[in-house]
Nucleic acid binder design. Sequence first.
DNA 1: GATGAATGAGGATTCATTCAT
DNA 2: AATGAATGAATCCTCATTCAT
Lengths: 209, 209, 209, 209
Amino acid sequence: MPAVGDEAAQPTATRDLILDVAEKRFAEHGFAGVSVRQIAADAGLKNQASLYHHFKNKRALYEAVIQRGMAPVIEVIARSKSETAGEIIDHLIDHLSEKPLLPRLIWRAGLDESEELRSIVAHALRPLFEMGFDAISRARLEWEEEDLPHLSFGLFQLIFGYFAQISLFEPITPNPPRSRAAIERQRRFLKRANARLMGRPRVDKTGTG
Amino acid sequence: MPAVGDEAAQPTATRDLILDVAEKRFAEHGFAGVSVRQIAADAGLKNQASLYHHFKNKRALYEAVIQRGMAPVIEVIARSKSETAGEIIDHLIDHLSEKPLLPRLIWRAGLDESEELRSIVAHALRPLFEMGFDAISRARLEWEEEDLPHLSFGLFQLIFGYFAQISLFEPITPNPPRSRAAIERQRRFLKRANARLMGRPRVDKTGTG
Amino acid sequence: MPAVGDEAAQPTATRDLILDVAEKRFAEHGFAGVSVRQIAADAGLKNQASLYHHFKNKRALYEAVIQRGMAPVIEVIARSKSETAGEIIDHLIDHLSEKPLLPRLIWRAGLDESEELRSIVAHALRPLFEMGFDAISRARLEWEEEDLPHLSFGLFQLIFGYFAQISLFEPITPNPPRSRAAIERQRRFLKRANARLMGRPRVDKTGTG
Amino acid sequence: MPAVGDEAAQPTATRDLILDVAEKRFAEHGFAGVSVRQIAADAGLKNQASLYHHFKNKRALYEAVIQRGMAPVIEVIARSKSETAGEIIDHLIDHLSEKPLLPRLIWRAGLDESEELRSIVAHALRPLFEMGFDAISRARLEWEEEDLPHLSFGLFQLIFGYFAQISLFEPITPNPPRSRAAIERQRRFLKRANARLMGRPRVDKTGTG
DNA sequence: GATGAATGAGGATTCATTCAT
DNA sequence: AATGAATGAATCCTCATTCAT
């Protein structure tokens, strides 16, 4: 129904539509907080049964949503193998600020929803953490070997956490946290924080550049 | 555990029991993922109806759980008005590592569960953020005024995020993240990170002290 | 709701009512052919949910129906330990002709509905078969030892089969098979058949006596 | 197996395949206990819709299954117009023991599944009962005219019942009831029983002959 | 303070069937 | 002859909640 396919055929118009609305709902309310009925309705299906033609069950749909959502993150990370930490942060912020559902989706999936679900997320995030290791190592900083996972995980929290829990941020900041200005502020903050954490602290003139 | 009964026997033994099991369930599965029936059963009640004698409804129970859970956090923070950032981190880590459900509860409540729920959490966290401002200001560091909320929020992510999403951390660290050793490592990491972020970066010999 | 209890209280008015209507439905259409909704409606419940207060699920209800239905059969058999085969047949026919649902229930449960269901029936019928062995043995007839199960099972088929599949009998008999006359005819037939099968064949003047 | 295609290749290979798997399923679980989806899947169809190309609906499929299943029984009976009862029993046992699904199919259809379904079975069984009448009449036995339907129906129960409810027989017999030995035992039992029931009781030396 | 019973609404999933391709 | 997609209705069962006891 949606004019998805730009050039070739539309391999799964309905399926993608379902994924879209499911992504939104799951990000907002979590797996248990969303009903298949709602998703089907949002997708314009006259009946929940139609949804089951595309996904075996609710869980399969959820996994598909997560996997599809993680893919671009993985790509962003993969593409940035040789980039500086600052550049990677730039790319991630660009991506996350345009896909505001994604961080919450990841955040939720990381909280529970069964071990298997978490493993999907964990697996998808692994390259992110590894790139964290790399970047850190490249920086030849003073952290000990055993600190690296903690540092890497901390950076993850800093980068994704802002967008994931943005609503908790709202009451403590003057300007709306989703505004362009606030995001740019966060971008600069992240880069400086990164620079400081990575050691070489004097280099924190990095700024936006 | 029931810190209520001052005179009579245990006026709310059951109530506290319900809160205990509800806290566990809500932390693990979120508001929508838990049924009143389950909580009642966990609490040893033979009937869900009994639960309604203590709480108006599921939501009221949830709010009570959150409020009860937040109280000690607020206390920890309140008590630390004049402490150094390092001491506050120490206290928070001590508390969070002993109450592993709490961070997940907060993390979840911060994700959604309706605006009013979030406001409970946000309200409870406000002193934490303010103490962040204070500490930062005291440190007279180079951050600009407008960065302070971002920094404050970032510290919150770093401190609570480790425990909240500890299961995401598992696959990327050699030793179990809930182990004593890992928690001490995280403590030291946090303090160093804090020192670096707070400026005065050269002082990062802080270590555990 | 139903005035079940004649003297004492009504320990489970609703429960028994549900069992009654379920028995009827299950006997007529089998486990898979009946919906919980139908049973609940028949029982005067405004909602299927009420049914689940009395039975864990559909299967538990089914088992309860079967167990309750089998009980009197077992009793009839147990009471007839010292009776002649003719008397036992009399009692069984009396019972079955007054409880027309029971034989179909047993017949169905014996067909499938999972092994566990069949085992309930099989277990309940065991005394019947054993009494068959006994009676046969008492008759000192010419059957070989190994024939006894077959003979016993055959008698079961003859006795219960008439009532269970009475509708198949309809097109081949002049008078309605559920009529008093037809049942008496079947009674006499069964006794004669029994006498002949049991050997001592000359005694088949037995008649109704 | 497809006795249809006289000229073209296999005009209904799929149709017969569907009938095969449907026969199995229906025999095992009854009309209501089987889904079209299952049958289609068993038949290797990728889609249930394909099934509807061969059968108008589920009921039509069921009727086709029953009719196809009954055909050889009718044949066996028809061919045996001039045979002795012993021979007929032999043929029926031969057939039924090789087609173990058939008796259950008939047994089930005889229990309910709407009057029209039963009428199919009743109609198909009519010759069997009539041959019962004939054989009995030929035997000039002592049964009264009005007993004949009962006797005829009883023989039907004895012959088909063993195979139909064989699982109820299992717990009361030492050797597996589907084993060659048990079936031969049942064959001999049936013949002797028949001889005894048919009168001429002294002739029960009949044995296997 | 606790419980058995009941209930309306909704949960996920499957049903048999149709239609365009 | 077969299939992908869709759908209305129904499946079993659980939801949170109330009320009389």
